[in-house]
């Protein structure tokens, strides 16, 4: 059964222009938030997110409606984000960690409702990228292991390991902040 995103995209392909705007509204913030896990810069993440949506417009028949629209968008987004990272590394050393910007905090506030999740969000910035992204996809975007694996191009076993190690790393960070898990 098609998810909401796929349904909107099908309507857009059938000529309903407004459906695309609705699709953007539905996935814009989660996508930017996800991309920020890689690029750690809201403006860049926003720019990459726009490119991801443009991909939907200019290559209309690449999406096969087999995976969820969210998974598809995140797959494209990850690929774009990694390319962005490569370019950035050539231009200047990519900072390991940046202070959260006001925009980022606002975005996090909109998406993350409770204190524990907020603490988790902060802790994610302190752990390796693969752990961070895996945890983000599963716990913030609520993707299944399988879909998260598609986005990260990992199998379920690898995802299980990544999540296990990621959780262990986050636990260590949170315990340092005084949370008892």
């Amino acid at each position: 059964m098609e998810d909401r995103g796929a349904e909107l995209y099908r309507r857009y392909l059938e000529g309903e222009k407004a459906a695309f705007d609705e699709l953007v509204r539905l996935y814009r913030q989660p996508l930017i938030f996800f991309l920020n896990r890689y690029v750690r810069n809201i403006s860049s993440a926003e720019d990459i997110a726009a490119d991801v949506f443009v991909e939907l417009l200019v290559h209309r028949h690449r999406y096969n409606f087999r995976s969820s629209m969210k998974t598809y968008l995140f797959m494209i987004g990850r690929s774009r984000a990694l390319n962005f990272q490569k370019r950035q590394k050539r231009l200047q050393p990519f900072p390991e960690q940046q202070e959260p910007s006001t925009d980022e905090e606002l975005l996090a506030d909109r998406i993350i409702r409770d204190d524990l999740h907020r603490a988790l969000h902060r802790a994610l910035n302190a752990i390796p990228e693969d752990y961070r992204v895996a945890l983000h996809l599963v716990y913030f975007e609520e993707l299944s292991y399988r879909d998260a694996g598609r986005v990260m191009k990992k199998n379920e076993k690898q995802m299980t390991n990544l999540l296990y190690r990621g959780k262990k790393a986050v636990k260590a960070v949170l315990e340092k902040e005084g949370y008892s898990l």
Binding site: V24, R25, R28, I32, I42, E46, D47, A50, V54, L57
Partner: peptide
């Protein structure tokens, strides 16, 4: 961070630029 309308406009601008570049 851009507003929703500005973000949509950004997408349309990028689409136009992409199509022009492709041509």
């Amino acid at each position: 961070m851009r507003s929703e309308e500005a973000f949509l406009q950004l997408i349309r601008d990028k689409e136009t630029e992409y199509l022009y570049q492709r041509r």
